[in-house]
Simulated assay, not measured.
Amino acid sequence: MSTDFQHARIALGLRLRELRAEGGLTGRQLADRLGWTQSKVSKLETGRQTATHDDLKAWAEGVGQPEAAAELAARLRSFESGTRSWRRQLAAGHKPVQDTLTIEYERSTVMRAWENSVIVGMLQTADYARHVFSAYVDLHQSPRDIDEAVRARIQRQEILYQPGKRYRFIIWESALLARMCPPAVMAAQLDRLSGVIGLDTVSLGIVPFEASLTLPPANSFWIYDERLVIVEDWHAELWLDQPENVALYLRVWETLAGSAVYGTDAHKVITRCRRALGTL
């Protein structure tokens, strides 16, 4: 969880505690009034649980200050805009998430991505994408709109061929070996990677296992122009648009790019991984 997010959650909790104290209520009294457990009140006040908008409205009414609901909601929105939980994003399935990302791709001229565990979405085959979405649907227990999500991802790939766009992808070799799908599907996926090398709009770098690294090949992220970074974690996505954060991720990306191989050398790494499948 990001430090900024946690600090904002703690600050909201302190404000909730302040409102409760102003209402002359103990935590137990407020819990009883709202029909909650006392532990929920405690977790919200100490920043160990993220309040929902309904929680905040109930809290304001419960402490006798319904007019505070708007203030509390504004506080929640201010840090939710940077941290987008998967639970909430996937309430309607994966396709709406894909549609939101397509808007960002269309807005952007230069797109940079670092992937350390799976093939970057813009280069996935439909069969590979289907296995990836299926895994995350099972993990998050979200609606199974897998076919719709795959179609949205594949349709977005048409942007790869738009003149004036630049896509600079770096992938760690581990993503080329991770068995997220059957060998035949992975073989076709690796063939797809080989096929995009040389596209006018695409620069594909592979960081091989034997490369010298200045930084560890940590979590994946995407940079849209120099205005937005999206970092994916298990519980949420972080959408970062503060200039200092964007600048930091640009430095990370450039450092990782310096360890990558391109062109013929990238082909060699892909071929090596292809042979490891045993399908040649």
Rank of each mutant, 00 (worst) to 15 (best):
S2N: 12
G13T: 03
L19R: 10
R20D: 06
R20V: 10
T26A: 11
Q29E: 13
Q29P: 02
T37S: 14
S39P: 00
S39L: 05
K40Y: 04
E45Q: 08
G47S: 09
T50Q: 15
D55L: 02
L56P: 04
A58Q: 13
Q65E: 09
A68W: 02
A70H: 02
R75F: 09
L76D: 10
F79I: 10
S81W: 10
S81V: 15
G82M: 07
T83W: 05
R84T: 02
W86S: 02
R87D: 15
A91N: 14
G93D: 15
G93Y: 14
H94V: 05
T100A: 15
L101M: 14
E106F: 03
E115I: 05
I119K: 03
V120Q: 09
V120M: 06
Y128K: 08
H131A: 12
S134N: 10
V137Y: 13
I146L: 09
R153K: 14
L160E: 03
P163M: 07
G164E: 05
R166F: 01
S174T: 08
L177F: 00
A178R: 15
C181S: 13
M186V: 03
A187H: 06
A187C: 02
L190Y: 10
R192S: 08
R192W: 06
L193R: 06
V196N: 04
G198N: 04
L199M: 13
L199R: 08
V202Y: 01
I206D: 02
I206H: 04
F209H: 15
E210V: 07
A211C: 05
A211N: 06
S212D: 10
L215Y: 10
P217N: 01
W222C: 09
I223A: 06
Y224E: 08
E232I: 14
H235T: 10
W239T: 03
L240F: 11
V252N: 00
W253T: 01
W253H: 03
A266Y: 01
K268S: 06
R272V: 09
C273M: 07
R274V: 01
G278Y: 05
